[in-house]
């Protein structure tokens, strides 16, 4: 009984994650007045890439081939920790969000090393920027989780989101609002969305995340794209569970609402991408420092209560 629901949740997340980029693209297309790509484009891309034969640079070693694999595996593992609509997944223990944080770190480390393995100036540049932004994003993300832990008095993801109710929003609204803002900024930066990076750009010099994976092809690229979709899902789920703390008691109802929330968040990302210009590269850390300030303020509010 208690294994079926987590399994269903996990499968739903794993299968629906590639929809989020599709939603974002549709929203962007709507704003631009275009017809846009099909909603399921990423699924088509993945299916196509998995059938293709990859090309490897002569410079590369096993590190290059292992990068996408490790990244995707780390994110799938992270998904197994992630609560779904405030309900625990397979793995849930005290401090599991720290594990989640470091799984994201592992995915990043593997991607960066794979990029450096190509010996390309552009991919090295992307790797350097990715690491730079991580240095600013991690403290912000950490502070956000810390204030969430402080608000709910829990130290596991499932515990935190389980203890979060509508009542929490009425007593600690400022804290949760600041947190949501901070998480959203981190989501944009970590998933290379617009103010930080432009996923649609095709100039190597200005790319960050995309430039790191220029040399990957075939199933490796499929792993990377899938991992990126999972990462987006992960951050969106954290925000979604914070914003939507209702527990109606009905599993199906909660889950449906949660999924709706996820697509709503994707749409929000799409709106942000459509109406905001990209930040200058040197300003991206500023955005993350702002996110840090938000979550630090949230924590101070909560601690001084």
């Amino acid at each position: 009984m208690e294994i079926v629901k987590p399994l269903l949740q996990f499968l739903a997340a794993a299968l629906l994650a590639p929809l989020l980029p599709g939603v974002i693209n549709r929203v962007k297309a709507f704003f631009a007045g275009r017809k846009g790509r099909p909603l399921l484009q990423l699924y088509y891309d993945l299916a196509k890439l998995l059938r293709k034969t990859p090309v490897y640079s002569r410079t590369t070693t096993w590190v290059f081939r292992a990068g996408p694999l490790l990244g995707a595996a780390a994110l799938v593992t992270a998904l197994a920790l992630l609560p779904f609509a405030g309900r625990p997944s397979f793995l849930s223990f005290d401090g599991d969000f720290i594990f989640l944080l470091y799984l994201l770190g592992l995915a990043r480390f593997a991607t960066v090393l794979a990029a450096l393995d190509t010996g390309s100036a552009f991919e090295g540049m992307g790797a350097s920027r990715e690491m730079q932004f991580a240095v600013f994003a991690e403290p912000a993300f950490f502070m956000g989780l810390a204030s969430l832990a402080r608000v709910t008095g829990q130290t596991s993801l499932a515990g935190m989101f389980g203890a979060l109710t509508g009542g929490t929003w009425s007593t600690a609204a400022p804290v949760l609002a600041l947190l949501t803002a901070s998480f959203f900024l981190v989501l944009l930066a970590e998933n290379s969305r617009v103010p930080a990076d432009d996923p649609d750009t095709h100039l190597e010099l200005t790319m960050i995340h995309e430039v790191m994976v220029l040399d990957h092809s075939g199933p490796d690229l499929a792993y990377i794209l899938y991992g990126a979709a999972l990462k987006l899902w992960l951050f969106a789920a954290l925000i979604g569970s914070t914003v939507l703390p209702r527990h109606s008691g009905s599993w199906a109802g909660d889950s449906a609402l949660f999924l709706l929330m996820m697509f709503g968040l994707a749409a929000a990302v799409g709106v942000v991408e459509s109406v905001i210009a990209r930040l200058r590269l040197t300003k991206v850390p500023y955005m993350l420092i702002t996110a840090f300030a938000f979550s630090a303020l949230a924590l101070i509010f909560q601690m001084g209560r």
Binding site: L50, R51, T53, P54, V55, Y56, S57, R58, T59, T60, T118, G119, S120, A121, F122, E123, L214, D215, G218, P219
Partner: peptide, 14 residues
């Protein structure tokens, strides 16, 4: 996925 395929070798995309 890679069964029966021989990955091509090339230059790094620069």
């Amino acid at each position: 996925f890679l069964r029966g395929k021989t990955p091509a070798q090339g230059l790094t995309w620069d």
